[in-house]
């Protein structure tokens, strides 16, 4: 009996061994192929956004701030250096908010490719993993381009400051993964996604110590920053970029908070996907 029980195990593992191991990667391949169909949007966004923002905020607004408050006006550095890490993190969050909303809604509902994939050996959890992998790739690429523009504008030193690219990627995931979990629960979109962009993403962008230090805001509004992955990520990016000073415990909070948001959103999305695709 035991000899027979061992045999099926081995034969079985073979037939689905590759999908069991690489399923998430196949989903990511699929996503990247779909992204190719809107590659021009991706490229224009990746190049145009840093150009516009760095020019407007850093050079335009920055000149005004420097003229009035001196060249080390904010947090001991120029306004451009102060604002650039925040712009980088915000850009990552914008990309994540594109990739983790409509494509997820599309896959479950509008053009239910996830239902199609779940008929293959690939599991719902792997579908979610694959979405995450594809977005990580786009986030790293977009953030790297952004950071190179920052370098070009003199908004960041080189060297270890390049870590900002990974921080921005983490910020994007920390915001995007819980959003993906939420969107995965939607059975129809009667404006929830647009509301999310307007009343969650936009305030987070504005009140996360992005354009001015969080401490300048009235205390009763500062909680927005404390909850915002953009603030936690921006502070980290400022540390690696121009050596902004933060106590060690707060640095740990920044990192752990971002990781916790990302991982909990990711696991939740996996669970929701499983419940939805295997009923």
């Amino acid at each position: 009996m035991t000899a027979l029980d061992a045999a099926p195990g081995e034969q079985l593992r073979r037939v689905a061994a590759r999908p069991r191991r690489f399923g998430a990667w196949y989903v990511a391949e699929h996503r990247l192929r779909v992204m190719r169909s809107y590659v021009s949007t991706v490229l224009i966004g990746a190049v145009g956004t840093p150009l516009l923002y760095l020019f407007a905020m850093g050079v335009g607004l920055g000149a005004l701030v420097s003229a009035n408050l001196g060249p080390h006006a904010v947090d001991g550095v120029s306004y451009l250096r102060f604002v650039a890490p925040a712009l980088l993190c915000t850009a990552a969050v914008t990309v994540a908010s594109e990739e983790f909303t409509y494509p997820v809604m599309l896959g479950f509902k509008w053009n239910p490719t996830f239902v199609g994939i779940s008929s293959s050996p690939v599991s719902p959890g792997q579908i979610i993993d694959g979405m995450v992998i594809a977005v990580v790739i786009r986030l790293v690429a977009t953030s790297a381009v952004y950071w190179l523009f920052m370098l070009l504008f003199g908004a960041t030193p080189s060297g270890a400051a390049a870590l900002s690219v990974l921080i921005a990627t983490l910020v994007g995931l920390a915001f995007g993964a819980p959003v993906m979990a939420y969107v995965a629960t939607l059975t129809s979109d009667s404006g929830q996604i647009a509301m999310l962009m307007r009343f969650v993403l936009l305030p987070l962008t504005l009140f996360s110590g992005t354009f001015f230090p969080l401490t300048l805001m009235p205390v009763y509004l500062q909680w927005i920053g404390w909850l915002s992955p953009i603030w936690h990520g921006t502070q980290l990016a400022r540390i690696v970029s121009y050596g902004a000073r933060e106590p060690a415990w707060l640095i740990a909070v920044h990192v752990l908070y971002l990781l916790a948001l990302f991982v909990s959103g990711w696991l939740l999305a996996r669970r929701i996907a499983k419940g939805r695709l295997y009923s």
Partner: peptide, 12 residues
Amino acid sequence: GPEIRSQLGVVP
């Protein structure tokens, strides 16, 4: 599940 699905074709 994955082993079975690897042997099926599904036309929904």
